[in-house]
Nucleic acid binder design. Structure first.
Length: 654
DNA sequence: GAAATAGAACAT
DNA sequence: TGTTCTATTTCA
């Protein structure tokens, strides 16, 4: 017997192995098998079986599963995702069932008849495998002489017995602020739980948004919320794994890692804030979990609710097209947002503008809480020598370096490497260094000096979790400044008096084709979470952006859709980014030619823009492929396995 | 994706 | 002819 195995590597072909006699009765489609690969071992999925025993193939070492570890609908979802994201079947399946998921660790054996060897009853599966061999246990299992039960629910482990309960389906976009959304979710969840169904709810982030939702939902449904994700311990995670597939009437709250989780009587899927970047998986199998959640709902015929104050544009388009039903409960702000126009940016000014100072001074006098947003986190993200005019660049990749005051280190924006800060220019040794493009750290320090005695909290991605207690200061009576990047919109349940946006308009320069959409998301999510009574945008006159355009949601979206349609950009066509990196220009250009040749051959050359060459330490070519995915699929699948080529579906940063 | 191998550039 | 680096191939 020969089996074809899909391995979790970016290679489209499958690998064939012989099946030794011991395993022949147990090899079935979509079970995992351990196989020799190169000179190591690998875990792959059986995707094909054929008779025969020829041509010196290697043998599989072991069949890891006794039952398909993914149910039919999860497999269907994986198949769809594999095509949509141009990822190999093995890579997607490997994500769906990560190798670190210790399923057997929490399963025990229940013996149903008299069998040899004795002593299997109540034995942990792992131990039984070790003592008697997997094949012995598998044989009894397949003859129906024993069953498994998990140690959390003590219920029989029934692989893939998913009764379809939902007769509903349907997609809803709930437009509204956090409180309204939560209320709506709670009503819908209550209906499901009453009917004994489960609810699968996605959040982008465990620590902040996830914790908040967990607290609020636990309040409404005590003991019913179970979590699944990397931030809970392995044991807790496994408990959720078994409870989700064995019991009804619960809310499974998790991140993108529960996209493929088996859920018994799944009655509803909720996606909280689908516009969040954290829904994107960047390693290995790259995808956007919102897309997959919507697809899962379709496959399972389960209703899905997407809840947001500023949904992604593609979701809004689906709503306009009538595919998604809309419930609108738009927030209102108490006072018209105000624009504070300054002549020169804070970066170039070297000091805080007077208008900003007086605004903050007034706030301090009134003991107000002020949230200050800025797009950059470090002290300065542009460091220049004033003598030789050279920029500080990374020694490894020549990306631009930013200065992190707290660590007194330079950090590379493109490769992430850190270097000590020497206080002099590496080119000419001059000590006249100019910091510009300042961020949160700079404001933190400058405002600290200008307003001694005022509590200042910073909210940036990494530090947010440790900083959580600091946020309790926001409910004190003293004035508080909370300064941060987009992370400011993560800790739900915070309330400020004023929201000040600084250099927010910069995003139109760095945001690519989604610049306006990003600006909208940031502003809306800040307003949604922080509930400011007053909003101010400090903008440089030359780059001024009309704030009003961002407060009429419908007008904004319709206008943006119109622009995208005219320019033939997503969500009207799909975009793929093709990236290749080589040290040698000639070698790279050869590869570019090879790709172009493949494109001509398949008649899709007119869909390619570029390549755009970037030369730092390495050469990097980027091509953008736009068009109908059906038409592009074969081409992308072909070039995606060229060495050094990376295809990114639906890129966000171009 | 990662290891083995082929190839290029440089030093001995 | 050895050494070290990068590019390419291959994995069953």
């Amino acid at each position: 017997m020969i089996t074809h195995v899909a391995l979790p590597i970016p290679v489209r072909k499958t690998f064939s192995y012989l099946v030794p006699n011991t395993w022949v009765p147990f090899v079935k489609p979509f079970l995992r098998v351990k196989v020799p690969f190169k000179n190591r071992e690998a875990v792959g999925f059986v995707v094909g079986i054929e008779e025969g025993c020829d041509k010196g193939l290697k043998e599989i070492q072991e069949v890891i599963d006794n039952f398909p570890p993914l149910d039919k609908k999860a497999l269907q979802l994986a198949e769809w995702a594999s095509r949509y994201y141009i990822a190999s079947q093995g890579l997607v399946l490997g994500y769906a069932l990560p190798p670190g998921l210790p399923i057997e660790q929490y399963l025990k054996i229940k013996v149903l008849a008299e069998i040899e060897p004795s002593g299997l009853d109540n034995l942990p599966l792992r131990k039984a495998y070790r003592l008697f061999g997997r094949d012995v246990v598998y044989k009894h299992y397949s003859n129906g002489l024993l069953r498994y039960y998990d140690t959390f629910t003590n219920k029989d482990f029934i692989p893939c017995s998913h009764e379809d309960v939902s007769d509903r389906g349907g997609k809803t976009l709930f437009l509204g602020n956090t409180n309204d959304r939560l209320q709506y979710y709670i009503i819908k969840i209550a209906q499901c739980l009453e009917e004994g169904k489960n609810v699968l709810m996605f959040v982008s982030n465990h620590h902040t948004i996830g914790q908040f939702c967990f607290d609020r939902l636990t309040e409404a449904f005590p003991g019913k919320v179970i979590r699944y994700g990397v931030s809970v311990t392995s044991k807790k995670r496994m408990e959720t794994y078994f409870r989700a597939r064995n019991k009804g009437g619960q809310i499974i709250l998790g991140s993108r890692s529960c996209l493929f989780l088996s859920v018994l009587r799944n009655g509803l899927i909720i996606v909280e804030r689908p516009e969040e970047d954290d829904y994107r998986n960047e390693a290995g199998f790259r995808f956007n979990a919102v897309n997959l959640a919507i697809k899962r709902a379709e496959i399972e015929n389960v209703p899905i609710i997407l809840g947001s104050a500023s949904p992604p544009l593609d979701v809004y388009k689906r709503a306009v097209d009538g595919e998604i039903n809309v419930i609108e409960k738009v927030y209102t702000i108490k006072k018209q947002p105000a624009e504070i126009i300054i002549e020169k940016g804070i970066s170039t000014l070297g000091a805080l503008p007077d208008e900003l100072k007086s605004l903050l001074l007034q706030a301090v006098e009134r003991n107000e809480k002020v949230a200050i947003y800025t797009p950059r986190k470090d002290y300065s993200s542009r460091i220049r020598c004033l003598d030789c005019k050279g920029l500080f660049l990374c020694q490894v990749c020549e990306g631009s370096l930013s200065y992190q005051k707290q660590r007194d280190a330079l950090s590379c924006a493109s490769c992430g490497k850190k270097f000590p800060y020497e206080e002099c220019c590496r080119q000419c040794g001059s000590r006249l260094i100019q910091f510009s493009n300042v961020g949160v750290e700079y404001l933190e320090q400058t405002l600290g000096e200008a307003f001694p005695g005022v509590t200042i909290i910073s909210a940036i991605g990494e530090s947010l979790y440790e900083n959580k207690e600091a946020f309790t200061k926001l409910s004190s009576r003293e004035p508080v400044f909370v300064i941060g990047t987009q992370a400011l919109a993560k800790p739900y349940g915070v309330k400020v008096d004023k929201l000040v946006m600084i250099e927010w308009e910069e995003l139109q320069r760095i945001g690519g084709y989604r610049a306006m959409e990003k600006m909208f998301h940031i502003l809306s999510s800040l307003v949604d979470v922080l509930e400011p009574d007053e909003i101010y945008a400090v903008m440089v006159r030359k780059k001024r952006v009309d704030l009003k355009g961002f407060f009429e949601i419908k007008t904004f979206y319709i206008g943006e859709l119109e622009k995208r349609k005219n320019a033939q950009f997503p969500p009207f066509v799909r975009i793929f980014l093709l990236e290749l990196e080589k040290e040698n220009e000639v070698v790279g250009l050869r590869l570019v030619e090879k790709i172009k040749a493949a494109a001509s051959e398949q008649g899709i050359i007119q869909h390619i823009t570029g390549p755009l060459v970037q030369k730092r330490k390495k050469y990097r070519w980027r091509m953008i492929i736009r068009g109908n995915e059906e038409q592009l699929h074969d081409f992308l699948a072909t070039v995606s396995i060229f060495p050094g080529v990376r295809v990114e579906a639906d890129p966000v940063n171009i």
